[in-house]
Design a protein around this nucleic acid. Structure first.
Length: 512
RNA sequence: GUCCCGGUCGUCUAGCCAGGUCUAGGACACCGGCCUUUCAAGCCGGUAACACGGGUUCGAAUCCCGUCCGGGGCACCA
């Protein structure tokens, strides 16, 4: 049977890096085994789900190179792929469970349930449904119906309590630690090994709301079975849901999929990655010029190391070697610094192999920061191309473009106060900068080499060491002390702008 | 409270299942040096970890037990 994995997002927000990370492994596993990857939209929470987010999520998924064989947009043989369009399926499955006496109607009101919960809390006990409606007589049911009470549907966990139903190798096992036989739901987790849950801890949980809507746990089981999902990889927070799901599979005489519970991504404080850590939506990384190939490589290395001594892997290599069983168990922390390094590696590669792609990216970035129009002219593009060439591997992420090259795109450049104070407001600098300006203005050919020889000659004429002279010029030209090679930068800036900035710098130097 | 999962350098991790070759390896970050007109890159070097306590064993990061710490579940949320 071919491998089928899925990702089932709720379209209530942007695709989160944690979600993208998990999705990537599901996708990778399907591709690794020549199987299918399916996208299913869990939009049962109608008040919060929007089509807008559904589209954005799909767009972000495509951006990191995740494609799907079946989904709401492309269809497929097991559709529909939106939960809101699958409600009859859940209703049928619920009927089937009732027919098999594996589920029952519960007429308890919210208040009654709340009272049970409060009692449990007061006694410092974990809340378990009392089972009050488990064995209602026809007369009691008739009475509730006459009252027009609404009912939920609960799963009858009880039917699995008989140790005789347990098998030795199966997911329902009887174990005896000396205090009598107890029945356990044993989840064979591909990452963690067998995880046993005492059936006594599982109550009769609700599977259908009083408004007829299926609850997540139940809908999930029905969907995964119907869509023929073979491997479910999800966050560890779902591990405790799994025994309940296995029970439902069992009651319906369905075979549960293989499951694997990966750790959840954490922030620097070791808490689950969330909004308060900032930059959690994948799109923010895209906007900051992180490359999808870098994201994917970085994702792979969180929780999984394919081979010692190497960290850079192409998507194809990852596809060839990835195995769920090798996944780490501990929550990785999303380390921006390592991502930055990795993105730099891929950025360098992209600049060599796909310069036009990088050019487009940078133009877009500059436009988003107001330094370039959305539709740059051919001349503006040419300047960016040139700037990119002299920037070289200084560009690791979008912000580097600004820190090293913003002065190309704004007149006058933003001046760093400390740099001005230190390098421009030094004795003798004013006349020197004026002299340089004059000489550059008179230069026959305005090239980096020519600029350099003029600067060296002027420094010699003034009796100032070359090294000492570089910084004031840089500050006058760029407003800062860091950046690309001074002479390449000057050439790219062009004679006119270079000369006027040098004169402006001289004015600052001479000012009292 | 209870159930479940986790715990190797600051971070990602290798090693753990099949104890010795681990005075615990790599990478990012950090620190120092070289190169150099600055920064970045590159090269060289450095700091830095088996959560703790008991076992078992000739020998434990690796096996067992306990403790501590962290995370998650315990909804008519997903």
């Amino acid at each position: 049977m071919s491998v089928r994995t899925r990702y089932a997002p709720s379209p209530t927000g942007m695709l989160h890096v944690g979600g993208a990370w998990m999705t990537f492994f599901n996708w990778l596993y399907a591709r690794r085994h020549g199987g299918q990857f399916i996208l299913r939209i869990e939009d049962t929470d109608r008040s919060r789900s929007t089509e807008y987010y559904e589209k954005l999520i799909m767009d972000d998924l495509r951006w990191i190179g995740i494609d799907w064989d079946e989904g709401p947009d492309v269809g497929g043989p097991h559709g529909p792929y939106r939960q809101t369009e699958r409600s009859t399926l859940y209703a049928e499955a619920a009927d089937e469970l009732i027919r098999r006496q594996a589920a029952y109607r519960c007429y308890c009101t919210a208040d009654e349930l709340e009272a049970e919960r409060a009692a449990a809390a007061a006694a410092q006990r974990a809340y378990r449904y009392s089972g009050r409606c488990r064995n209602l007589t026809p007369a009691q049911i008739a009475a509730f119906e006459a009252e027009k009470r609404r009912y939920t549907i609960r799963f009858r966990t009880e039917s699995f309590r008989d140790p005789a139903r347990a098998t030795t190798g199966g997911w329902l096992q009887a174990r005896d630690d000396g205090s009598g036989p107890r029945v356990f739901v044993v989840v064979p987790d591909l990452i963690r090994g067998e995880v046993a849950f005492d059936l006594a801890d599982i109550d009769d949980f609700i599977i259908v709301r009083s408004d007829g809507g299926a609850l997540y746990n139940f809908a999930n089981v029905v969907d995964d079975h119907d869509i023929r999902i073979t491997h479910v990889m999800r966050g560890i927070q779902h591990l405790t849901n799994t025994p309940k799901q296995f029970l439902m599979y069992g009651a319906l005489a369905w075979t549960p999929p293989a499951v694997a519970h990966a750790p959840e991504l954490a922030g620097l404080d070791r808490k689950k990655l969330s909004k308060r850590h900032g930059d959690t939506s994948l799109r923010e990384y895209r906007d900051e010029l992180y490359l999808p190939e870098a994201m994917v490589n970085f994702f792979a290395l969180m929780g999984w190391y394919p081979e010692e001594g190497r960290e850079l892997f192409s998507r194809e290599e990852l596809m060839r070697r990835y195995d769920i069983a090798e996944m780490g168990k501990a929550s990785p922390i999303f380390d921006r610094q390592k991502l930055n390094w990795m993105n730099g590696e891929y950025m360098r590669l992209a600049m060599q192999q796909e310069p036009e792609r990088v050019l487009d990216l940078i133009c877009g970035y500059l436009a988003r920061h107001g330094l370039l129009p959305a539709e740059p002219t051919a001349m503006q593009r040419a300047l960016v191309r040139r700037v990119l060439a002299i920037l070289g591997d200084r560009v690791k992420v979008g912000a580097d473009v600004l820190t090293y090259a913003d002065f190309f795109f704004q007149d006058p450049p933003a001046m760093d106060d400390a740099a001005v104070e230190k390098h421009l407001r030094a004795p003798g600098i004013g006349p020197f900068l004026t002299a340089i300006a004059d000489r550059l203005d008179a230069l026959a050919t305005f090239t980096a080499a020519a600029v350099e020889s003029e600067v060296r000659a002027t420094a010699a004429a003034f009796g100032i060491a070359f090294k000492v002279v570089v910084h004031p010029i840089r500050v006058a030209l760029t407003g800062k002390t860091i950046g690309p090679g001074l002479f390449e930068l000057t050439e790219a800036l062009g004679r006119e702008r270079a000369v006027s900035r040098l004169r402006a710098g001289a004015a600052i130097a001479d000012r009292d």
